[in-house]
Design a protein around this nucleic acid. Structure first.
Length: 113
DNA sequence: AGGTTGACGGTTG
DNA sequence: GCAACCGCCAACC
């Protein structure tokens, strides 16, 4: 995949998020060099399907799981996060405690300057 | 070609 | 908290 592809950048950046942490859609878009493109993140993840892509670590800006509560997808995400030690209450994560922030050198590696 | 739809987010009241 | 807007824009009617 070409590095120009926005989805590629997003996925590469997402792979930097370690287990036990989460990142917001808009947050991830910003880190990937695509400010204001939160919806693009969701669209890319929807078609992705890469096994090693930690899609479950992406939540809404307020910490909520984006899928409808009770849906299979929501339960799957909740289970994965819980398994990593992320506390999820009412389909919601405390961003103040689990939000991830990239190191500068990590971003430079992905953004290729 | 034009309208609708999202795994969203920020602002305002 | 909640709801109503607005910005976003590629994919899909």
């Amino acid at each position: 995949m070409p590095k120009q592809d926005p989805c590629y950048q997003i996925k590469q950046t997402l792979k930097l998020v370690p287990a036990g942490h989460v990142v917001g859609y808009g947050q991830l878009a910003d880190y990937a060099g695509l400010p204001g493109r939160a919806r693009l993140v969701g669209r890319c993840l929807r078609q992705a399907g890469e096994p090693d892509l930690p899609w479950h670590r992406v939540v809404r800006a307020n910490g909520q799981i984006a899928f409808a509560p009770g849906s299979n997808a929501a339960e799957e995400q909740r289970a994965r996060l819980t398994a990593e030690g992320v506390v999820v209450m009412h389909y919601r994560v405390a961003m103040s405690r689990f939000a991830w922030q990239p190191r500068l050198d990590e971003l430079l590696g992905v953004l290729r300057y």
